[in-house]
Design a protein around this nucleic acid. Structure first.
Lengths: 188, 188
DNA sequence: GTCGAAGTAGACAGGTCTGTCTACTTGATA
DNA sequence: TATCAAGTAGACAGACCTGTCTACTTCGAC
């Protein structure tokens, strides 16, 4: 899900976006300055501002990019683990474990963005809500059809967010996954 | 739980701490400058730096203060609602509803601090972990004695964190509380 | 009454931030 | 060959940040 190569053959816009993604996610949005991004991306400042008129525009592009990246990874992980997992709880936990234990895991980029940037631009919150809604839909698709399938998926998504945070706060992911397992077993 | 009076008769240290609490929680830690705090608290810059040698020291004091404030509120809310609630899920949800729907609700100060300040000082994360552990203990006290009471409390705390986030992301608290209710009913 | 602790206002240093500007280079296309 | 889009380096403006400094005031304890 992460990409750190910064291939100098890529077009400038792509290099800027990928670098912004790495730094915004790793160090935080406010803590990452434009100068740092252009240095690491190997582009001139004018180039960055030609593609992204302001830092807020770059942040929005980062969130859209991250959304695509994460959803793609999630779908892929679900399909990969579906072979060896025979229950929805096991499947979700296997996928999330892969994420929580990946290098440089720092929680959910959208939660982090809302915490850091709430009040600066309403669009950051809007993008984050859209992301969470799409996650709920993906979870709902895993559940058997029933009247309250959507409510169930919503509750699972809430529990998943809690687990994401716990894995971020503690270095270990085991407690978070254990707690999430207990919740999922109970709900489903 | 919140205090906005800033009584000018209070000692300077107290005024600084309360003002820092209001601003750090409302606007975020990084977004709040020292100049803003001293202006709003009505103290000189030298006075602030005599009591808190650096901004990081002030942030630590803010977190400790917030911890005491929140735990006090939580205990009080639990005891207040225990009269009219006859189950643990109802009790927790009644208390959290009060918080989620209070003026200026902006999520959990400790989650926010970790997201904003992770990597700046390890102590911020340490204080936040201690806070969460104390919350787990308070939740465990509500549960009947059993072998896995602590695991149950941990899982509930994870779900509560998820609900805290959902209530922060959406303007409404209803969805968050509904999902949390579903989880609690299933677990307990 | 003297002294020291704790307060005041506000200038200042040195750093970082976003965003603009100038002046130059490179490469594809018409 | 001429043009134009897209890139480069880097100085600069103006704002804001933390933290230090000077010089003055107030007030209680001894």
């Amino acid at each position: 899900m992460d990409d750190k190569q910064h291939d100098p053959n890529l077009p400038a816009r792509e290099r800027i976006l990928r670098t912004a993604h790495s730094l915004f996610y790793r160090d935080g949005i406010r803590a990452t300055g434009i100068d740092r991004i252009i240095q690491e991306a190997g582009v001139a400042k004018v180039t960055l501002y030609r593609h992204f008129p302001s830092k807020n525009d770059l942040i929005k592009a980062y969130l859209e990019y991250r959304h695509q990246l994460w959803i793609m990874w999630f779908k892929d992980a679900l399909s990969r683990y579906s072979k060896e997992c025979d229950s929805v709880p096991d499947l979700l936990i296997a996928a999330l474990r892969e994420w929580f234990e990946s290098d440089g895991y720092r929680g959910c980029a959208f939660i982090n963005a809302v915490v850091e940037m709430d009040g600066v631009l309403p669009e950051f919150t809007k993008i984050s809500k859209r992301h969470k809604e799409e996650v709920v839909e993906l979870i709902a698709n895993l559940l058997p059809h029933s009247q309250d399938r959507y409510h169930q998926a919503l509750a699972i998504a809430v529990a998943v967010d809690g687990a994401i945070l716990r894995a971020q706060l503690e270095k270990q992911s085991e407690h978070a996954l254990e707690s999430l397992g207990l919740i999922l077993q109970a709900i489903i």
